[in-house]
Design a protein around this nucleic acid. Structure first.
Lengths: 351, 351
DNA sequence: TTGAAAGCGCTAACAG
DNA sequence: CTGTTAGCGCTTTCAA
């Protein structure tokens, strides 16, 4: 297609054999510098481009990666994709991106289709079951994002720390009753976060966290969650992610409930849109692009284990304070504290 | 990698020759139904997956497409990518996605890298010059998005109609002085839109459109544009795209200028984020995903010209009225009455 | 340091 | 309808 020019053409022009051309182009130190230069010039002159199919056929490697995400329009995955993309490219890999549209069946299909033509696969929070996942990744170097599975490499963020920082922030502002609007019940991250809440509570005496349910982790889910959050009487709400938090913000505004005066809102991720709204969203930033780059690094380590580039187990996060949080309306002035009994109320069990 | 099982293995198990297996898997009607079934069963049983490299080597086709976009985190391109993705997949193509990070050099590099391993390339508003573009697409089936170039297939939206609808809407509300916050001067679309403004004006007597400059087509660009728009005394502002409109909204709010009471704002594209803010953004929807699918269709037509799937020259658009536009403050009530002088440029400029 | 030869897995003539 | 043969463009032994 692109270039009908082959190694043989280059070889002829450079007066060497095809194999020498091949060597000059890959294992460059196996050929005499002069010859090598001559070959390079010839290749340049002819506009030679190696045929990936032929190369792949014999080496068994494609220099391609595959990435499967549930929804490219979700800014979370857009950022991760961007991270994967950039890093892969810098390492000489092109990447297939596939959008499963949040659907398990197409997810499986995509993995099948891609697995055969990549050196490694990055699966971003796939919906499929552990068994399907284990089954389908068999024989392909795979890295999971935001999900752990024995035997499979994975990249996650520090969910416990996310919750700790979010809750710590609200606690410091004086909030003592916080609603948690959770993500999908099947979500691995959501599980981690709910667990993190319980851990965090031991350090935050007097804090009560009310779990108001599981929601689809998008704008609409947040809108539904908002009313429930209000109904609990909480002075602040922590959402499973920014998209939900944005939905909460929107619904609250629609009801005339002022943020942060009447209700503080905290998101998770620090998606771009978090700064597009007003009040700008206070959130715990997850290093989304870095998640992507780390996944690529892990993949490369899996393929070429020589010089592994180490990554932390769970990527660090950071609270970003913006305008959607403040001291609660009912706050006790800092000077004369101690109103609610210390360590009195603790988290209610999830219903 | 994935399956070391080859056509020969399948052939052996099905007691046929390799070529029959090959035929059964592609030109299915060239082989006896019984044989075919036997082969399919054998393939299934062995977990056979065709080797794309080998197939590509001989057929010269890869069944892959490439897509180059400036920024995956920009929701505009995210949507286009999603469209490309979905359609390509349905047609049996996997797609390489490459993010050029708005950089010409990497754009060129990406095209080079991808061109050799795809059947077609979709280039989304590339920054490179016409010459570079023409040069680089030489020999590769290419479809351009939002840019026209002789000899190269392209998909665009109806920019003139976008402007007509946006301006028509504002005009109908009673606005007579509108600021246009343009996109990059080098942008093909922006040129079309400015041209569209002049055309539209002939149908909208008494309307004045003030072009306030060229801005980077993102949130920050909108923020800068906002103050200029206010300074013109216009009662409404049309932005080059939604991201800019969102920036304008934000800056206006920060200055205490109420939207839409003091100033109406109209965006273009109807990106997801347009509904995330309040007031929700009035905008002219461009069929972003459809742009992607149309590009894929065009690519397929270019590759297999047998049964072309026709697409309109420029994709249709639609005004979406939300809450960021209203009658201008100084509007003349429809009933009659003269409040401000005719042909006024009543403004609420704050300096 | 280089060349000759072999073959990766598949498909496309061409016979049968 | 099916088998045989040949070869896509490249890399990689193995000799020289």
């Amino acid at each position: 297609m692109a270039g009908a020019v082959t190694v043989r053409d280059v070889a002829r022009l450079a007066s060497v054999s095809a194999s020498t051309v091949s060597r000059a182009l890959s294992a460059s130190d196996l050929v005499a510098p002069v010859t090598r230069q001559r070959i390079l010039d010839a290749a340049q002159q002819l506009g030679y481009t190696p045929n990936n199919s032929a190369r792949g056929l014999i080496t068994g490697r494609t220099n391609n990666f595959g990435l499967v995400v549930p929804d490219l329009e979700n800014p979370y995955f857009a950022s991760v994709t961007k991270g994967v993309q950039g890093r892969a490219l810098r390492e000489g890999y092109a990447v297939f991106v596939a959008d499963s549209d949040e659907d398990v069946r197409s997810e499986i299909e995509l993995v099948r289709k891609l697995a055969s033509q990549v050196d490694g696969l990055i699966l971003c929070s796939p919906r499929m079951s552990d068994e399907e996942l284990a089954d389908i990744t068999e024989g392909t170097t795979t890295v999971l994002i935001n999900r752990r599975l024995p035997e499979v490499e994975s990249i996650t963020v520090d969910d416990a720390e996310i919750v700790r920082q979010a809750l710590g922030h609200l606690y410091a502002l004086g909030h003592r009753c916080v609603a948690y609007a959770g993500g999908p019940a099947t979500s691995w991250s959501d599980g981690q976060r709910r667990h993190g809440i319980h851990t965090a509570l031991t350090d935050l005496p007097g804090l009560e966290v009310i779990e108001i349910g599981s929601f689809t982790p998008v704008f609409g889910g947040g809108q539904s969650a908002a009313d429930l959050a209000v109904a609990t009487g909480a002075s602040a709400v922590l959402a499973y992610n920014d998209l939900m938090a944005l939905g909460i913000l929107s619904r609250l505004q629609a009801r005339g409930i002022q943020v942060p005066r009447d209700m503080s809102v905290v998101g998770i991720d620090d998606v771009n849109a978090a700064t597009l709204v007003s009040p700008a969203l206070t959130t715990v930033r997850a290093p989304l692009r870095k998640v992507g780059t780390a996944a690529v690094n892990a993949l490369i380590d899996g393929i070429r284990p020589e010089n592994p580039r180490l990554e932390p187990e769970a990527l660090p996060v950071q609270l970003i304070v913006r305008s959607s949080t403040s001291v609660p309306r009912s706050a006790v002035p800092l000077t004369s504290r101690e109103e609610a009994g210390p360590n009195e109320r603790s988290s209610n069990a999830h219903h």
